[in-house]
Amino acid sequence: MTDPLDLYPISENAPELAVSASGMPLERLTLEEVLAGRVAATDIRISAEALRLQAGIARSAGRDRLALNFERGAELVSVPQDVILETYEMLRPGRVTDPALLTARAEMLRRDYGADAIAALIDEAVAVYARRGLLRRRY
């Protein structure tokens, strides 16, 4: 098997693997397509596949923490913006006083989006927040 690092940069070494979140291949993102009105906002969004490729590249370069972050990012690609912002808000200190709400959020993300790593992160937060008294209203 080839070293994922050889794919980097993907835009030069493997452009055919770069497909946007909407499924548009990189080479179709041209001025002609834009002028013809055939490029939408979702066409300029990164895909989970591209992030997983980058995760493989990062891991191969000895950067496993970065790879894990890209994999968490890949899980969030299909998560709508409002859900992301709401989840972020819930993770801030004192926003949630009932740990069950965070646990339920983790479960929802796992179930609806396959976001296992993100869910694990939230579960871990719940345990520490409880121990450190962060499940307490701040305003």
Partner: peptide
């Protein structure tokens, strides 16, 4: 918290 920031970091990547 570190977890909210880690989540945000992943959100930027996404």
């Amino acid at each position: 918290t570190p977890w909210s920031k880690a989540f945000l970091t992943a959100a930027y990547a996404s």
